[in-house]
C-alpha cells in the first residue's frame, strides 16, 4: 500500500517535471528560432528565467524519491544508463549557467556565449531524455538501448519537447499566438510518453523497506501543500507575457 503511494508520488513529480520543465527546455532548444537577434533572445530568455528553478526542482525531487523509496530500481537504472545520465546532467548544468549568467557581463559577446550554452544544453537535455524514454518504452531498463525503433521514438520525443517549448512561448512572448489549450495538449502528449515509459518499470519489487516508506511517504505528503504554494505563486506571479520593450 505505502509502495503504491510512493510510486504515485514518484509519478506525480516526474509528470510535474516533464510538463513544466519540458516547457522551458523546449524554449531553450528553440532559442535561435524564437529570437533572431540579441535583443529578442534576451526577451526569450527572460520569458523562461523566472520558471526554470521552480521547474527543475521537480526532477531533483523525482531523483531523490527514486533513491529514497526505490533504491533497488535506482541501482539498476543509473549504472545501466550511465552515459545518458552523464550527458543529461552536463547539458543541464551548461544550460543553467547560460540562463543564470546571461545578464551579468558584457553587451554582445558574453550574452551570445550564454545563448549558445542555453541552446546546446537544452538540446542535450532533451536528447538524453528522449533516448532514455525511448529505451524504457522498448522495455530496456538496465542498458543504453539502440536500434531503429529507439531512434524513431527518440526523435518523436525530441520533437515533443520542441513543440511544448513553442506552446509555452505562445503564452509568454509578445507577438506569438497560442493559448492555454495548446499548452495543455503538448503537456499531455509529453505526460503520455512518461506514463507509458514508467509503466515498464517494476516498482513493487524494488521498493525500500516498509519501515522507511511509512516515514517517508507521510512526510512528503505533509510537505506537499508548501511545495505547491511555491509553485502556484510562481505561475501566478509570472503569468503575463514578458514586456516587449527592451532596455539597454
Amino acid at each position: 500500500m505505502t509502495e503504491t503511494l510512493a510510486a504515485a508520488l514518484l509519478g506525480f513529480f516526474a509528470l510535474g517535471y516533464f510538463m513544466l520543465g519540458g516547457a522551458d527546455i523546449g524554449v531553450g532548444m528553440m532559442l535561435p528560432f524564437l529570437g533572431r537577434d540579441g535583443d529578442r533572445r534576451r526577451l526569450v530568455v527572460a520569458a523562461i528565467v523566472p520558471f526554470f528553478l521552480a521547474n527543475e526542482v521537480w526532477l531533483v525531487a523525482t531523483a531523490g524519491l527514486l533513491i529514497g523509496a526505490f533504491p533497488a530500481l535506482e541501482a539498476q537504472l543509473f549504472p545501466g544508463l550511465f552515459p545518458l545520465i552523464v550527458a543529461l546532467v552536463t547539458g543541464w548544468i551548461v544550460r543553467d549557467m547560460g540562463l543564470w549568467s546571461r545578464e551579468r557581463a558584457g553587451a554582445r559577446v558574453w550574452p551570445a556565449i550564454c545563448d549558445a550554452a542555453v541552446t546546446l544544453g537544452s538540446w542535450t537535455v532533451a536528447g538524453a531524455w528522449a533516448w532514455i524514454l525511448a529505451g524504457l518504452l522498448t522495455g530496456v531498463t538496465d542498458d543504453v538501448a539502440g536500434g531503429p525503433a529507439v531512434a524513431l521514438l527518440a526523435a518523436v520525443v525530441v520533437a515533443l519537447f520542441a513543440l511544448h517549448g513553442l506552446s509555452f512561448a505562445g503564452l509568454r512572448l509578445p507577438g506569438r499566438t497560442g493559448g492555454r489549450s495548446r499548452f495543455a495538449v503538448t503537456a499531455a502528449a509529453l505526460a503520455g510518453v512518461v506514463l507509458a515509459a514508467g509503466a515498464r518499470l517494476d516498482f513493487a519489487a524494488s521498493a525500500a523497506d516498509d519501515a522507511t516508506l511509512r516515514l517517508l511517504v507521510p512526510a512528503v505528503a505533509a510537505m506537499l501543500p508548501l511545495l505547491l504554494i511555491g509553485q502556484v505563486l510562481t505561475w501566478r506571479l509570472f503569468r503575463h507575457r514578458v514586456a516587449g520593450r527592451v532596455s539597454a
Binding site: 528553478l53 521552480a54 525531487a61 529514497g68 533497488a72 525500500a208 522507511t212 508548501l226 511555491g230 509553485q231
Partner: peptide, 30 residues
C-alpha cells in the same frame, strides 16, 4: 551504497530534495 543503506541514506537524501531543496529553490526564484 544505495543498495545496502538505501533505507536510511537514500531516505534522508529523499527528504533533503523534497522537504528542503524543492521549497528552497522555488522560493529563491520568487
Amino acid at each position: 551504497l544505495t543498495h545496502f543503506a538505501g533505507n536510511v541514506v537514500g531516505a534522508s537524501l529523499a527528504m533533503e530534495t523534497l522537504v528542503a531543496f524543492f521549497v528552497e529553490s522555488t522560493f529563491l526564484g520568487l
